[in-house]
């Protein structure tokens, strides 16, 4: 499977890299963990149905996911919140993570309704992006929460869920787990036989 990412957005740089095909070289503990991420997504149980729809759209926007296949971000984030799996800290001016997420989806939905007269999950991609960008640009409070700290929390959860997925690794040229095989060709410009050369190396970031 390849995530749909246009070439202009960095898609297609590592043609043929399929991290999952390297799994015979992974240790058992790692292998079963990574394979679980491409298996059936965990059922949503922390968010209610309405929250799930908003959160799913929001998480997809945060990492630019449009179209299938997609990494099931809302299921992964939901499972973390249900398990209370935090990063081991919270800002003193925010409630605990689960509560921040519940408030976030409610407020982001309110913002969409106020701007466009339609709920966030039903808004167009451009409208969703505009609603989120407004939060990103907010200095100070957003619905009674410090916008910068809320944004930081959203991105931490979204990035962790997305870049833990092997399809995302394929997109960035990262070959994934490396035990017990390891690497033998170290150094600038050197590759292992299973690493794929960047097809567009001149692209500026």
């Amino acid at each position: 499977m390849t995530l749909p990412l246009p070439e202009d957005d960095g898609g297609g740089r590592f043609p043929g890299l399929r991290t999952l095909e390297l799994r015979d070289h992974w240790d058992e503990a790692t292998s079963s963990l990574i394979l679980s991420r491409v298996g059936r997504p965990p059922d949503v149980c922390f968010f209610n149905a309405e929250e799930e729809g908003i959160a799913a759209a929001m998480l997809d926007q945060l990492v630019g996911q449009e179209g299938e296949p997609r990494v099931p971000l809302v299921n992964v984030v939901d499972a973390r919140l249900a398990a209370g799996e935090t990063d081991g800290w919270r800002y003193a001016d925010l409630p605990e993570d689960g509560e921040v997420w519940r408030r976030s989806v409610r407020f982001i939905d309110e913002d969409a309704r106020e701007r466009y007269g339609v709920g966030f999950a039903d808004a167009t991609a451009a409208q969703q992006e505009a609603v989120l960008e407004a939060v990103h640009r907010t200095e100070g409070q957003w619905h009674g929460m410090p916008a910068g700290h809320v944004w930081n929390l959203w991105l931490r959860y979204a990035c962790t869920a997305f870049y833990a997925h092997p399809w995302a690794w394929d997109e960035i040229g990262f070959p994934g787990p490396a035990y017990p095989r390891g690497y033998s060709n170290l150094g600038v410009g050197r590759r292992e036989h299973f690493e794929v050369r960047d097809a567009h190396p001149g692209e500026q970031a």
């Binding site: 990492v63 997109e171 692209e203």
Partner: peptide, 19 residues
């Protein structure tokens, strides 16, 4: 993301990881 990048912009910059 700490540089303010998100969405497609984040994906594009991440595709540059090996450089």
């Amino acid at each position: 993301a700490a540089q303010g990048h998100w969405g497609r912009d984040l994906r594009r910059r991440m595709s540059d990881f090996v450089h």
